[in-house]
Design a binder for these strands. Structure first.
Lengths: 225, 225
DNA sequence: GTTTAAATTAATCATTGAATTAATTTAAGG
DNA sequence: CCTTAAATTAATTCAATGATTAATTTAAAC
């Protein structure tokens, strides 16, 4: 039993440079920041909380990044963009038919989610919503290309008679994001609150691709009246 | 030109009960709060900013609502739920085929957006995302019914052979929200950044219903190889 | 060994935000 | 008219947050 006079917090680190080689602290701080930013939004996430999650003092965030804004920029530059850019480049040429393009998109999102589980929530909150803190920055970096690349591909498909009537090529980006990235951002909700434990990315992907492939009605019941 | 010694801010209200009958201030505060909450997220929206947008002092928020939490509850109780509940009730019986149910859903969302333009962004940010401030509260009030009602309807349709193969009835809620409410939350983005001025709710709705009706490939090019 | 650089904490500061209170003005009721 | 209640602002308080600095410990370099 610890003596009553020495509070002796269990594993409290002493002041000074640590013995063990903690050379990866910067990475751990970025990870903690990503999780916290995605969970509560960037504005609502305090540096104290992030530092605490990484087991250090908020002064370390100042030491490694300078200030909160620079931390956000580092996260975007070193984690977000490097993982999103390959997808954008892939989509410029992947697949032939519209459905194949959509499949490539869904697969790319699925891959990103597998490595960065916090990305969908952060993207939805801070990039896609009005007033999101990352909108300007991200749009300048990746997005000028992504929507236009995809739109051009779907427009070409329509010109070639490969796109179903009534589908707006320009709106396909919104539809694809809404069907893949967005559900991933709320996965815990759909899972727990709706009592569906089987909702993982593979299940979501096959469902979504079926929907994109032939819609939701069976041919026999379509327009029955 | 105003004299230099009297700053005399133009239309600064004097202290005390106002002459004109401003009996609707409480409503205006709720409106300003809704807009601000949707624009930056609840946590990041300051009472100062909300009060300023309504042209009054933050003390008025305390006067009418008590504290920020009560303001949020009032907004949910008096603006959100009354506008969302009718949709939930409609969906319990509207339409016959899955496509008709989806159409009723899309139309309901469209109607809500017309009256409360700020709702999609607020809903996506604070209800659907992990860590959203309204999740617990809203889920206890409306959501226990909405997803289950819709899921049951799509499951019945599948049992009746009206649902296309590969479609998961439980995931349809996520798909519908992702195709309707979610794009509405980011409408200004799709519009401005993608150079598509024609993106309004009617256009989005017809596109989405076409997608849900028959998928995105023309029958002739489906499975070409 | 001694010196120097790196990494870390504790402590502090300034700013902002939510919450509260006292004072003030006007409307309404008798 | 006089009194009372309602609505509003200015000013203040308290907690939390981002930012910063000085002190401290260890590793590395010579």
């Amino acid at each position: 039993m610890p003596s009553r006079t020495t509070p002796a917090k269990p594993r409290r680190r002493r002041v000074g440079r640590p013995a063990g080689d903690d050379g990866d602290l910067r990475d751990r701080l970025l990870d903690a920041a990503a999780v916290q930013f995605a969970a509560t939004g960037i504005a609502a996430a305090s540096l104290r909380t992030i530092a605490q999650a990484a087991g250090v003092t908020p002064a370390m965030l100042h030491y490694y990044f300078g200030n909160k804004d620079a931390l956000v920029r580092a996260l975007v530059g070193e984690r977000l963009l490097p993982n999103v850019r390959p997808l954008v480049e892939t989509l410029a040429s992947a697949g032939e038919t519209p459905l194949e393009v959509a499949q490539a998109f869904a697969q790319g999102v699925s891959a990103i989610v597998a490595t960065l589980p916090w990305l969908p929530a952060l993207w939805v909150r801070e990039v896609l919503c009005e007033g999101g803190a990352l909108r300007e920055f991200v749009f300048r970096e990746v997005m000028p290309s992504l929507p236009q690349v995809l739109t051009r591909r779907f427009e070409a498909a329509r010109a070639a008679g490969q796109l179903a009537p009534g589908i707006d090529p320009r709106l396909m980006v919104a539809s694809l994001v809404g069907l893949t990235l967005f559900p991933a951002a709320g996965a815990p909700i759909w899972q727990k609150a709706f009592g569906m434990p089987g909702l993982d990315m593979p299940a979501l992907m096959s469902h979504t691709l079926a929907l994109l492939g032939h819609g939701l009605a069976t041919p026999s019941t379509e327009k029955p009246r």
